[in-house]
């Protein structure tokens, strides 16, 4: 058993942290929230426009247009990551660029670029999902848990 729980700050450390805290610039949370809302929303709007484009000019229905739309967003995100633009945009836009599809594509593409120097197998292949991997693991696992809950509830409801 670790002693993590027991590890507490000494009074000197606590005093210093209070002292330092007063002098640290805080994250501009309100600005970040507004920008995240606007940028995240704009990316979704772009997705909607792309989706309508596929429905208008190609033979897609509202249901099937999702696939090419997502593919287009992934392509754009990976392209801008490769061109070195995405990270600067994200520094400004914050959580807005974390919108699942583009943020996910950025995390995969950036890790792949970063580790290209270590070769394709150990570098690109081994590190591509360094950041995205946990999203997949916990995403799939939570989907599984929710599905189980749904099945149980349906059974229970069906019993009556």
């Amino acid at each position: 058993m670790s002693d993590k729980k027991k590890k507490k700050l000494t009074p000197t450390q606590q005093e210093y942290q209070n002292f330092a805290n007063k002098r640290e610039p805080k994250r501009p949370i309100v600005r970040n929230c507004i920008l995240a809302f606007l940028i995240g929303g704009s990316i979704c709007l772009l997705g909607q426009l792309i989706s309508m484009f596929y429905m208008t000019y190609f033979d897609f229905t509202e249901k099937t247009a999702g696939d090419p739309t997502v593919a287009t967003l992934i392509f754009l995100s990976a392209l801008f990551t490769g061109l070195g633009i995405y990270d600067h945009f994200a520094q400004w836009a914050g959580a807005g660029t974390l919108v699942p599809v583009t943020g996910f594509a950025n995390s995969v593409a950036s890790a792949a670029i970063e580790h290209r120097t270590e070769g394709f197998v150990l570098g690109v292949g081994g590190n591509m999902f360094k950041l995205a991997g946990s999203v997949i693991v916990f995403g799939v696992f939570s989907a599984f848990v929710i599905a189980i809950i749904k099945v149980v509830i349906m059974q229970f409801m069906g019993g009556f």
């Binding site: 990551t81 995405y86 914050g94 950036s110 970063e114 950041l131």
Partner: peptide, 13 residues
């Protein structure tokens, strides 16, 4: 930290 092209927002500190 993160890959250089990863879009994580850095705090002002």
């Amino acid at each position: 930290r993160y890959p250089t092209e990863y879009g994580a927002q850095k705090p002002p500190t």
